[in-house]
Structures are given as C-alpha cells and as structure tokens.
Amino acid sequence: MTGPQQTYREALDELRAIHARLREDEIDIDSLLDDVKRAADLLAFCRERLTSVGERLEQVLTDFED
C-alpha cells in the first residue's frame, strides 16, 4: 500500500509500471486483481496530492500576484 514515505514521484512510477504490465498482450491473471487494486490506491493518492498542491499553489500565487 502507499506508505507515508511514498512520494508522488514514486507513486507515479509504480502506477506507470502497472500500466505497462496491463498493456502487455499476455497479462498475468493471477496478479491482475492485486495490480488493479494497487493502481486504484495509487491513483487516489496521486489525485489527492495534486489537489492539495494545487490548492496551496493558488494561495501562494494569489499572495504573489497581489
């Protein structure tokens, strides 16, 4: 699962690896469910990161542009 130490970059790299595995012709059915569940977690983590960074960025930019 996404540990507290995981960064956006690490999560994204992992997500890309799963993506690449699932695009292969011969996907591994045994690990498929785990991969998809893991991908859902990672996506949620990355979205959350993007959202919070985006909100804080808007604050900073607003202060900066005033």
Binding site: L12, H19, A39
Partner: peptide, 27 residues
C-alpha cells in the same frame, strides 16, 4: 506551474484509463 499540475492530472487519467482498459481487455 498550474499548467504543469493540469498536465499531471491528465497523465493520471491516461494511466487510469490504460489500467482499466488493459485489465478488462486482458481478461
């Protein structure tokens, strides 16, 4: 940087779509 964040989001969506489609079509 707003644009960069937007691009990241697009990328996540692309990955999500690929994973969903990849897993379904793989099955």
């Amino acid at each position: 940087t707003r644009g960069a964040l937007g691009r990241q989001l697009d990328h996540l969506e692309y990955l999500e779509k690929g994973i969903v489609e990849g897993s379904r079509s793989g099955v």
